[in-house]
Amino acid sequence: MDAEITEREYMHSGHVGCPGCGATIAMRFFLKAMGEKTVLVLPACCWSIIAGSYPQSTLKIPVIHAAFETGGATASGVRAALDMLGDTETTVVTWAGDGGTFDIGFQSLSGAVERNEDFLYVCYDNEAYMNTGIQRSSSTPYGAWTTTTPGREWKKMRKKNIVEALVAHRIPYAATASIAFPEDLLRKAEKAKGIKGSRFLHIYASCPTGWRIPSEMSVKIARMAVQTNIFPLYEVEDGLRYTINHKPRGYLVREYFRHQGRFQHLTDRDLDEIQKMVNEDWELLLRKAGERV
């Protein structure tokens, strides 16, 4: 069934990701597509921990741990160094969380892609600062509980649309992907690998610990985010050509929220409000993809 997905592993067992960690599933799939000619730049994020503390490493490819705000800049430097060595084969990848992408690393990311540096920036998005204790980020969705948006102070701001921000830079390739759609994820990683210039991949990676969900539901929840249009799968080439990769059958967002502890405080009215926002965003995407006039 999944014969096209290589058996080759670039990740070792024994990493210290939480049980059911979506970010580790994302990495496993991603590297299967990238192969060994990959250098990974890791700004501070969950993966800084998962990758192993010195002298261990859970990945079979070179990793550079970098400061939180330097994902874009470090990758630019690594690329320049490889160019000096005449290595055109190796792909430089920044692998950052949503905090390091949406908030703290945004300036260096924006700078690097504005220069159209030849690298692939991957944001695995678990919608808060998870490894420091579930603080909200600008990726945290409307309605979510975090330790910094507790109780009735749940987050009242919308999630930043990071893909659109990158598309606005008119980079050669930007796409979303999900751990629940491995074939789609691998295809996009392979496609990005073959493109020159700045590429951006936004991977939805569920977090049982921070989302207050049972670990076994991790992939199922990620799938529901796509099925409910909360996290549509699409890609944008040259900042212009939109392609929607998955057309869901129209499940209600309610289903997705119902399963997660971080949304338990929401009332039916709140959920109706959220459904409206999701519908609005989906319509906007359909218009951009030329499927609505």
Binding site: S13, V16, P55, Q56
Partner: peptide, 17 residues
């Protein structure tokens, strides 16, 4: 620059189960 040279397979994370 410190460079890691071991895998994580020494961590028997099955004990978390």
């Amino acid at each position: 620059i410190p460079r890691s040279c071991l895998t994580t397979e020494g961590n028997k994370t099955g004990s978390w189960r």
